[in-house]
Amino acid sequence: MPDSQPILEVHDLHVHFKMLAGIVRAVDGVDFSVERGRCLGIVGESGCGKSVTARSILRLLPSSDTSGQILYHPAGDDEPIDLVSLDAKGDAIRAIRGKDIAMIFQEPMTSLTPVYTIGEQIMESIRQHQDLSEEEAKDLAISMLNKVGIPDAERRFGDFPHQMSGGMRQRVMIAIALCCEPRVLIADEPTTALDVTIQAQILRLIRSLQQNLDMSVIMITHDLAVIAQLADFVVVMYLGQMAEKAPVVELFQDPKHPYTQALLRSIVRPDTPPREQLHSISGSVPDPRNAPSGCRFRNRCPSVHDRCVEDPPVVEFGPQHSATCWLYVDD
């Protein structure tokens, strides 16, 4: 894609937490970039660090130990800003949060304040970043509610979050996230708590908004089907390490990392013969505090090798496709 230009670049990101039980290396060396108007999917299981990665972009983890670079390219030809170098509680990052980069979460109920109406919450968010009068903010809020497909927006403006269903609340969250026309939307498992028919609605909404508003989306999920349906480019994470990154079609058709391969084989597809044994990955995801050294997938990997105890190299298979694995390095 010649016209692609990165809006967000993450280089060698490390996020560590000091816990009573020791240091948790929640994210250990993640590299990716998000292009304008495109959707990056980050996929992985529990403890893989996908949510931590997302939150560290917005510097929402002040107690963590973050290193590396997160370069945000603002509108115009301004110099990129390294978000890691910003004060996590300072004005600079607050100006970017919500305005340039917005985020939606898995459980919309806990992200909305129960004591204010959804209209008030959207207006508050608008007026935090834009200098608008109350009327203008209200008009904008109602038009946002319309845009995210809330029927009868004018009436629902005065509703409290508990009066809405999960799907409607997630739409409100999206409306709040979109009201300042962010250039990047981070969606952290936005449909996991929703029913299948509602999930389909929300994903369709996110996709159409992305296309119409020329917005970049970072979609974080454990569900490969969501990735297949939405993402242009995929990062596969396992226990804080980046296992593989590739354009979506390449990833599904020609996965390189043994973890990606096993994951793709283990899911049920329409053509999986009924009631036959599925491919499965042995063992279970270790506790992040006890992650193995070297390649963290090695104790479950079918292609494990002696050298996997050392940190694996990044092997490139094309301009945008790479896997972090010893398998493709000749001894």
Partner: peptide, 14 residues
């Protein structure tokens, strides 16, 4: 059935 997402990026028509 139509809402089921298919884990195949080449089949996106929902």
């Amino acid at each position: 059935l139509a809402s089921v997402l298919i884990p195949d990026p080449t089949h996106r028509e929902q």
